[in-house]
């Protein structure tokens, strides 16, 4: 995404799920060229089984992009102990007067979370789906209603057989 004009705005939201032996390497480029440009990147990665998920992104702030502002957030969720999550946030800044923020987290669906949901009568498959959808909420809530419902369904199908 190239933010060429002054005051232009860019947003990138993504959810990537890898299962079995899949390896995904996804991300985006935000090129700030104009002044007062703003961008947001929210990336959620879920790794299941023996899969590896990589976020690779570039935030570039050109010499003329005075007062540019980027906020990036990359969260990874692991399900199982043989999968992996990797984050490569490249940042290339050529003007001193700008703000580039990056946050990242990695968490695991824990036995205690699954037990808590099971104790309330929720099956393991539903529990995983509830936890994963909660994890993706920040992205799904940006989607139009119909599409968000589709995205949740797709997630459920992709997670089938992920546990047990």
């Amino acid at each position: 995404m190239i933010l060429q004009g002054d005051d232009s705005v860019g947003e990138f939201y993504s959810v990537a799920l890898t299962n079995n032996y899949q390896q995904a390497d996804t991300g985006t480029k935000m090129i700030h060229n104009g002044r007062n440009t703003k961008s947001t990147i929210i990336s959620k990665g879920i790794s299941v089984g023996k899969a590896h998920n990589t976020y690779r992104g570039l935030v570039q702030v050109g010499p003329n992009a005075e007062n540019a502002h980027n906020y990036s957030q990359c969260d990874s969720l692991l399900l199982g102990d043989e999968c992996g999550a990797h984050t490569f946030p490249y940042i290339d800044v050529r003007t001193p007067n700008c703000r580039v923020e990056h946050e990242a987290s990695t968490s695991r669906i824990g036995e205690e979370q699954l037990f808590y949901l099971a104790q309330r009568g929720i099956s393991e498959e539903d529990a995983v789906s509830i936890i994963v959808n909660g994890f993706c909420k920040r992205v799904f809530r940006e989607l139009p209603m119909e599409f968000a419902v589709e995205a949740q369904k797709l997630m459920e199908v992709s997670l089938e057989g992920a546990v047990g």
Binding site: E112, Q113, Y116, L117, N133, G134, F135, C136, K137, R138
Partner: peptide, 8 residues
Amino acid sequence: YPVEIPGV
């Protein structure tokens, strides 16, 4: 010790 479930 009830566990936290973020986003849910």
